[in-house]
Design a protein around this nucleic acid. Structure first.
Length: 500
RNA sequence: GUCUCCAUCGUCUAGUGGUUAGGACACCGGGUUUUCAUCCCGGCAACGGGGUUUCGAUUACCCCUGGAGAUGCCA
């Protein structure tokens, strides 16, 4: 029997790290074993499901490059794949359970349930439904339903015995039936199923072979098995994935930092970096390899290498991966990622002018190895497209020098630049490199003559041109900015220093 | 409260009945460098505790401790 797995998110918020980790593992498992990967939208919570969240789901999967074989818009004969469109199926299945005596209608109001819970909490007793309606006779129940009384359908959980399931990672686990939620709701008052019913019914109807989901679902494993049993179905194989935690060991959440894929995307992370890093949360290949493309994972992924213990999400390692992937990325493709950022940040016009494209292309090689996030490009290149002002003139003064000294050093630099030839056009790489070399030689010679450190000449100049202590390499920066503008900014800083 | 799961450097992890317990990130130091970054070299740092089995346990088993998760007409 070929593998059929699914990712079954509920569209109640943006896709987050934990969710897509589950999606990825299911996807890789399907691909590695020639199986089928299914997307199922579990929107049975009418209160919380939103169109925005649904849109985010599709956008996220597309961005990550996760393609599903069956799902909304990709019918494989088991649709529909959106649970709200399957309402009738659950209704029938719930009725079936009532008829076979595996479930019963419950007329308790949520007010009564709230009061009950409060009472139990105060008495420090076990929390849960008191099975108040379990013994109502079928006739009475039918009559009350007939009369229009609101009700839910609850599963009749056996009072005795134990229910276990086999987990690929954990082995056999389970719990005594008396420890399972007392008679959980299968069908809500609004006629929609709860997660438990819909999930089991769909997994069975869609012929799912393996359920891979986070370990937070372990406690409902036995309950689900009970539901399968009630229908007379065989449960699929289970594989509960280790959870993703924050720095403090608690379930990863907003207070730890970014958690949604869209946030990472907006912050300038590459999908290949995120996929690679997230895949290593609870899974590993061997003791040395840690770079994996999506295609690698589609081949190499295996259940045996999944870890049992929870993993802490390390933002810094993700950053490192991102820097690595930026440097590995095809330059032309990387440029198409970078340009829109400069446009939306208002650094260059939209569409960019030919001059702006030239400057960008010229700057690209020198900033590429400096980027950790794509968005880092904006602060790095701003000075090339707009006058950054003087900045903090104090920063122009090298160690063991004063403002006057810095002004003198700057003047020397100004002279050298004034005497320089006009920089070549961006396309001519050899000429550009040569020009940069010549400037370097000029400044070294001058520094040596005057017995200055070269840094003492370049620091004030760097500040003059970029208004920052930190910048891309200076001579390429000057070349791209243009001699005229560079000299203007230099003169301006000299004046400022002399007036300090 | 009850139930369940988990336990190797700060973090992600590899690994074994006998190893100097390996790698990566982070951190620290050094080199390259006009700053920053990249890159290179080096360093720091772990088997939670107690028992049992065994010639020998980080590795198997038990207990403890610690952490987490679940206890909804949310998923």
């Amino acid at each position: 029997m070929s593998v059929r797995v699914r990712y079954a998110p509920s569209p109640t918020g943006q896709q987050h790290i934990g969710g897509i980790r589950t999606a990825l593992f299911n996807y890789f498992f399907a691909r590695a074993g020639g199986g089928t990967f299914i997307l199922r939208v579990e929107d049975t919570d009418r209160e919380r499901s939103t169109p925005d969240a649904l849109e985010d789901l599709y956008a996220t999967l597309t961005w990550l490059g996760v393609e599903y074989d069956e799902g909304p818009g990709m019918d494989g004969g088991y649709g529909p794949y959106v649970q709200s469109e399957r309402k009738q199926i659950y209704r029938e299945k719930a009725d079936e359970l009532v008829i076979t005596g595996k479930a019963y209608p419950c007329f308790c109001t949520s007010e009564r349930l709230d009061a009950l819970r409060k009472e139990q909490k105060a008495a420090r007793k076990n929390i849960g439904y008191d099975r108040h309606c379990r013994e109502i006779s079928p006739d009475e129940a039918a009559a009350r339903i007939e009369a229009g009384e609101k009700h839910v359908i609850r599963l009749k959980v056996p009072l005795e015995g134990k229910t276990v399931f086999e987990d690929i990672l954990l082995g056999q686990t389970g719990r005594k039936n008396k420890d399972i939620n007392p008679d959980p709701v299968m069908l809500k008052t609004d006629g929609f199923p709860t997660y438990h019913l819909a999930n089991v019914v769909d997994d069975h109807l869609m012929k799912i072979t393996h359920i891979m989901r986070a370990q937070e679902w372990i406690p409902s494993g036995p309950l689900h098995v009970l539901i399968y049993n009630a229908f007379g179905w065989a449960p699929p194989a289970y594989c509960h994935l280790p959870m993703v935690m924050g720095k403090d060991g608690q379930k990863l959440s907003k207070r730890h930092g970014s958690t949604t894929v869209s946030e990472f995307r907006k912050a300038g992370y590459l999908p290949e970096a995120l996929v690679n890093y997230v895949s290593l949360l609870g899974w590993s290949y061997d003791d040395s390899r840690e770079f994996f493309s999506k295609n690698d994972l589609c081949e190499l992924f295996s259940l045996e290498k999944i870890n049992k213990s929870p993993a802490v999400f390390d933002y810094r390692k993700l950053d490192w991966f991102n820097g690595q992937y930026i440097r590995m990325k095809n330059p032309e493709i990387l440029k198409t990622d970078l340009l829109p950022i400069l446009m939306s940040d208002g650094i260059i016009s939209d569409p960019p002018s030919p001059e702006q494209i030239d400057i960008f292309n010229g700057a690209f090689p020198i900033i590429r190895e400096r980027l950790k996030l794509l968005n880092d490009i904006t602060p790095m290149l701003r000075f090339l497209f707009a006058d950054p002002g003087i900045g903090n003139a104090e920063d122009a003064i090298p160690k063991k020098m004063d403002a006057a000294g810095a002004a003198v050093a700057l003047k020397a630099g100004l002279e050298l630049l004034s005497a320089a030839t006009e920089p070549p056009v961006v396309g001519d790489e050899d000429a550009c490199a040569a020009w940069d070399e010549e400037r370097d030689a000029d400044f070294r010679r001058a520094a040596e003559e005057k017995e200055w450190k070269i840094g003492a000449m370049l620091q004030p100049l760097r500040l003059a041109v970029t208004a920052s202590k930190v910048s891309p390499p200076l001579f390429p920066a000057i070349r791209l900015l243009g001699l005229k503008e560079s000299l203007k900014r230099t003169e301006r800083l000299i004046t400022a220093l002399e007036n300090m």
